[in-house]
């Protein structure tokens, strides 16, 4: 009797999911061929390099044409980091650890400079090659996280103090808004780097594209500090 009851419940759940799949199949017939009738992406492809000065079209969409959405996304990371910092208890908690062999310590000496160089390359060349501020920030945040895992959490907080991480994250948000007000000072819209009268430079060099290079560096620092604080809060909240 109990077996038949459980099998009936499972069949009911599977039939609900199958109904959802059939409904989605009807909806997907409409959006089958959407990319060939869009006017806005034609404009971005044909006039993107001339108006903004960045070769990477995804970076020019994220940091010049739609930079207000990037401001909202930076706020989401700030909110998540603040929520997690509230839920951590005030007293010190103990973290389990072991003594590792010398292989692990030698590999740490190998890996940390490699991660630093890779993160800096992805941030600085974000407008010429695939990459950008967000990916570079996540790779830079790996260094405190790997140090927390192999050594204990007190050593990692002795090297990278939590006050400095909070300061970097707050400075990132404030500098983003100040660079946006720079567009109003020169007589154009908020967060405008292609429309204002900044010199754009030659497309294809390192220093080109107006405000895009500075925005990349600021977003990279902010996301890196935020991710490292989220990881430390999750470990301490036990």
């Amino acid at each position: 009797m109990i077996r038949i009851n459980e099998m009936f419940k499972k069949l009911y759940k599977i039939s609900l999911v199958v109904l959802l799949a059939i409904f989605l199949l009807y909806v997907f017939n409409e959006i089958h061929d959407l990319a060939s009738k869009s006017y806005l992406s034609e404009h971005y492809i044909s006039k993107g390099v001339q108006e903004t000065g960045a070769i990477n079209l995804v970076t020019s969409v994220l940091y010049d044409y739609r930079s207000f959405d990037t401001l909202g996304e930076a706020t989401v990371i700030l909110t998540a980091s603040a929520i997690l910092a509230f839920l951590v208890p005030l007293r010190k908690v103990a973290m389990h650890g072991t003594k590792f062999l010398i292989i692990v310590h030698q590999t740490m000496i190998f890996i940390v400079p490699y991660l630093a160089v890779l993160g800096s390359y992805l941030i600085l060349f974000g407008h010429l090659n695939p990459g950008g501020g967000f990916v570079g920030g996540v790779v830079l945040a790996l260094i405190p996280i790997v140090m927390t895992i192999t050594y204990c959490i007190e050593f990692s907080e002795y090297k990278f103090k939590p006050n400095i991480k909070t300061l970097l994250e707050d400075l990132g948000s404030i500098c983003f808004i100040i660079l946006g007000l720079f567009g109003i000072v020169t007589g154009s819209n908020f967060l405008a780097s292609g429309q204002s009268n900044l010199g754009l430079g030659n497309p294809g060099e390192l220093i080109s594209g107006g405000l895009i290079l500075c925005l990349n560096i600021i977003i990279g620092i902010k996301v890196g500090a935020g991710m490292a604080k989220i990881f430390n809060s999750l470990i301490k909240g036990e």
Binding site: F100, T107, Y114, I149
Partner: peptide, 16 residues
């Protein structure tokens, strides 16, 4: 890079 880091990571989990 994959060869170096994957082996050390599995060793860390097993030793712990």
């Amino acid at each position: 890079f994959l060869l170096v880091t994957n082996s050390v990571a599995i060793h860390v989990i097993a030793s712990f």
